[in-house]
Design a binder for these strands. Structure first.
Length: 482
RNA sequence: GCCCGCGUGGUGUAGCGGUUAUCAUGAGGGGUUGUCGAUCCCUCGACCCGGGUUCGAUUCCCGGCGCGGGCGCCA
């Protein structure tokens, strides 16, 4: 089984140097012919794809094919394929799927105006035989290549078609890359990936509303956060863990940045405080941005090409420099007050306030040291570390980008006595949290962590104005299908 | 939950108390063509639902449903 050994040797950058083995349906991807056509000229290939467009109704027909790797023109000519095949190709509806056997050839260069540079050679497949795999119904609920803009609701109702549009596909390719780079970075710092339960018996944090459900005969809830479980894992000695998983919140908000199901990128690490995990976070984000800039500018270009047609400014991938600015809660309040807004110490920093801070700090910035009173019971505080008017500060922080909150995190309380007092201070009964507080009774390392909204991070990277742009099948107040 | 706005062919839009309801894209048919945002000719397709005002409502009013924006809250 020698061939298996060969295949175990993976290329250094899996994302960019994918090995496309032939399948039962095709010998080559369209991307392979697009990029490596010069080596393939004259050889026979079998390709598959969606038919994006067909031109020509007489003795010849040009067909634009698209698969998940690229686009390619197929040339059909009377005499080279059978008459029924040619007619079938000419009458085929857009987005039908086809299989073509033919020879790779260099395309005839397009006519260019006098003095214009001749473009580099491109390649096509001259068909020998042509098979329709499935015929697409007409008309399409939305045009994959049409120039008309399409409402978000129509797009989400027909996401399978929307996703075929170049810039939409690029957005989700970028999403996959962001997750990949985030993972690989945390692994490089010793973090291990975990999975925590999404069906839970009690709330992880106060405040947010839960989706109730029946777990056989027991009332239960969908998890709003992996918080308590990732902490229990660290208490179990796993040292550094991360999870990329769903969180569910039954809140009736209706904004560009809220969903009722979202993917949270969470970490938790022993022997760290809030400053330490802020360091992890900014290094991770820096790595993600750097990796996108190094590997994925082709996807950014696709997005920008579309943005140009919509009159939007192109997006740029500016790798944020380290460290990110840190504006403590107290300083943030002062900044807001100095701008003339009335805000009291102890109040939440709202979106309009974030606009004020974002004027000075438009990119990523941390807001550490929130009042203890505003943070959940599991957040750590240092006795005597007080704000301007004497209130106890916490070791909780947020990460914002512009006006939008990306992350909430902090050092956790590891002293079980204080933890139980915190619960009582919040009006919660410690006996209901025994499964959690018991984890602290037999030795507990100081630890810290954060949760990052993946879709919100993607909004920043892709310049999206609605979180739904970066989520395949968003769940909001009025949408549970598809 | 509150405030504001919108609902017109498959898609995205213009417009109006009486119109042949605009434009683009699309779909169907045909011609030409190594085309590439193909092109040319012909054809097709729409006023969210219910009630009210009116001689007459797609247009005005009320209710419903759906959608969008802002706010609250959060990741």
């Amino acid at each position: 089984m020698r061939c298996l050994d060969v295949q175990r040797v993976l290329p250094p950058n899996m994302a960019k140097e994918t090995v496309w083995h032939p399948t039962s349906f095709r010998s080559h991807t369209l991307g392979q012919i697009q990029d490596g056509g010069s080596d393939l000229v004259g050889s026979q290939v079998t390709i598959c794809g969606f038919m994006e467009a067909n031109r020509g109704k007489g003795k010849i027909c040009f067909m634009d094919l698209r698969d998940g790797t690229g686009r390619l023109q197929v040339f059909l000519k009377e005499g080279l394929v059978s008459d029924p095949e040619l007619e079938c190709a000419q009458n085929l509806s857009r987005e039908s799927t086809v299989q073509v056997v033919g020879d790779v050839a260099q395309k005839r260069p397009p006519k260019v105006a006098e003095g214009e540079p001749v473009p580099p050679p491109t390649y096509e497949v001259v068909a020998k035989s042509f098979t329709v795999l499935t015929e697409a119904a007409t008309p399409l609920p939305l045009g994959v290549t049409d120039t008309v803009s399409i409402g978000l609701d129509t797009r989400l109702d027909n996401r399978f078609l929307d996703l075929r549009r170049a810039h939409v596909g690029a957005m989700f390719t970028l999403r996959a890359r962001v997750l990949q780079y985030g993972r690989e970075y945390l692994i490089s710092e010793g973090f291990k990936e975990i999975n925590s339960p999404k069906i839970i018996a009690s709330a992880s944090e106060g405040g947010t509303n839960l989706f109730p459900m029946m777990y056989f005969d027991t009332p239960a809830f969908l998890s709003q956060s992996p918080q308590l479980y990732k902490q229990l894992t660290v208490l179990g000695g796993m040292e550094r863990v991360f999870e990329i998983g769903p969180a569910f919140r039954a809140e009736k908000h209706d904004t560009y940045r809220h969903l009722n199901e979202f993917i949270s990128f969470d970490i938790e690490a022993a022997w760290m405080n809030d400053d330490d995990v802020m360091g992890v976070q900014e290094r991770m984000i820096n790595h993600i941005w750097q990796s996108v800039a190094d590997n994925d500018m082709d996807q950014i270009e696709i997005v920008n090409k579309y943005r140009e047609t919509q009159g939007d400014d192109p997006i740029t991938v500016d790798v944020p420099s380290l460290p990110f600015p840190r504006i403590s809660y107290c300083d943030a309040i002062k900044m807001i007050q100095d701008s003339g807004e009335s805000i009291e110490w102890g109040a939440d920093i709202e979106s309009s306030h974030c606009d004020i801070i974002a004027e000075k700090y438009p990119g990523f910035h941390f807001i550490p040291r929130w009042p203890m009173e505003m943070k959940p019971f599991y957040i750590h505080h240092i006795e005597g570390e007080n704000g301007a008017t004497g209130e106890q500060l916490s070791r909780g922080f947020d990460l914002n980008y512009g006006r939008d909150e990306m992350t909430s995190g902090g050092q956790r309380e590891h002293d079980v006595e204080i933890l139980e007092q915190n619960l009582r201070n919040k009006g919660l009964d410690p006996s209901g949290f025994g499964f959690y507080t018991d984890g602290f009774r037999y030795g507990a390392p100081p630890h810290a962590g954060w949760g990052l909204g993946v879709a919100r991070l993607l909004m920043v990277l892709t310049g999206s104005r609605n979180v739904r742009e970066t989520v395949l099948f968003p769940r909001d107040r009025q949408r549970v299908t598809p």
